[in-house]
Amino acid sequence: MGRTWMGNNGFIRASSAALILLIFLLELVRGQAKATNRSRTPALIVFGDSIVDPGNNNEILTTVRCNFPPYGKDFVGHKATGRFSNGRIPSDIIASQMGIKQYVPAYLGTKLDDHDLLTGVSFASGGGGYDPLTAELVQALTMDDQLNLFKDYKKKLKAIAGEKRASTIISRSLYVVATGNDDLANTYFTSPFRRNYDLSSYIKFVVQSASSFYQVFLFMK
């Protein structure tokens, strides 16, 4: 099948759509936090790409990392943590607005204490996407890798909280998945490896990959 090239407009539309979605999500969470008892949401658990990666990429052999200045210049201690930001990232803001905690830690490479595990972590990896090839191109964590980490997290949660409390936390937590930009911006528009797809067929493939992720996640949850 032919490939439709959208040029810079494609990048702009993808980035704008992601920004609008994040703003909507933050406003939705802000409203929910005001309208409900915050204690009803015990933890925030995050999957995705660089938008919500707080430092998982620091611990893997990837070309996509930002654990160096000027990243983190507005973060606590002006420290570059691996967040793809000068300060907090959306998952930190959501957790704070929900009254869960100030910062959502990376699952990898972090000395997680009981409180960290009880209140949620992030498995996100900068450079990833729903298309498995997106993460493979930069040696980031695939969405399947992140699900495997979630499986490991559940075991640790059960060990410290007990089966009943762990089950309650898993069932009542807020889950955020923020990914997909890199599928279009990097894998489809920039690399030559998906040229057998035109734009509409590639989007359909990504949607199918996303659907598979959510089906597996719901089964694991």
Rank of each mutant, 00 (worst) to 15 (best):
G2N: 14
L184R: 03
D53F: 05
I170V: 15
G120A: 02
R165V: 11
G180I: 10
S85R: 06
S191G: 03
V207F: 11
P132A: 06
L147P: 00
Y107F: 05
G180L: 04
Q146L: 11
E27L: 12
L61A: 15
S209C: 01
K79Q: 14
K155I: 05
I12H: 13
D114Q: 04
N56A: 03
Q32K: 14
D92L: 00
A135R: 09
G128R: 04
L22M: 14
G10N: 04
Q146A: 10
I170T: 10
F213A: 00
V52M: 03
D198M: 13
A17P: 10
C66D: 08
G10S: 01
V64P: 06
Y103G: 02
R40K: 11
G126M: 03
T187R: 15
N181R: 09
T134V: 07
F84R: 08
E27K: 09
I60N: 12
P90N: 00
S200P: 12
N196V: 07
L26F: 13
A178D: 01
K158S: 05
L137K: 11
L26M: 15
M1R: 15
G128F: 02
Y71E: 13
L112R: 02
A106T: 02
T110F: 00
N58Q: 11
L141C: 00
A106L: 01
Y175N: 06
K158P: 05
G2L: 05
G87C: 05
L26K: 14
R13P: 11
A18H: 07
E136N: 07
D116G: 01
L117G: 03
Q97L: 02
P105V: 03
Y202A: 09
I203K: 12
N57A: 13
L28N: 15
Y175K: 02
Y103I: 00
D53P: 00
V216A: 08
P42L: 03
N58C: 01
I45D: 05
Q215V: 08
Y214R: 03
M98I: 10
A17K: 15
F84V: 10
I51P: 04
I93F: 02
D53N: 05
R194M: 10
L25K: 11
K156R: 13
P69V: 11
D114S: 02
D116F: 02
L25C: 09
N37M: 14
A178F: 08
F205V: 09
V216K: 08
R195M: 10
N57L: 11
L147G: 01
H78W: 11
S167G: 12
G127M: 06
R172F: 12
F150T: 06
Y71T: 15
G10F: 02
L199D: 10
T4N: 12
I20T: 10
L133H: 11
V138L: 07
S85H: 08
Y107G: 01
D145R: 09
R3L: 08
T179E: 04
N8D: 12
L137C: 13
F123G: 01
S212D: 07
L26R: 13
A95G: 04
K221M: 12
G99D: 09
Y188Q: 14
P70I: 04
C66L: 04
S85F: 01
M6T: 14
V52W: 02
L199M: 07
N181D: 02
V46T: 00
S122H: 01
A161M: 06
V64T: 12
I170A: 11
S167K: 03
Y107D: 01
V206E: 03
D144C: 12
R30I: 09
I169W: 09
N186E: 06
I94L: 07
L174M: 15
I169C: 09
G55Y: 08
G7T: 03
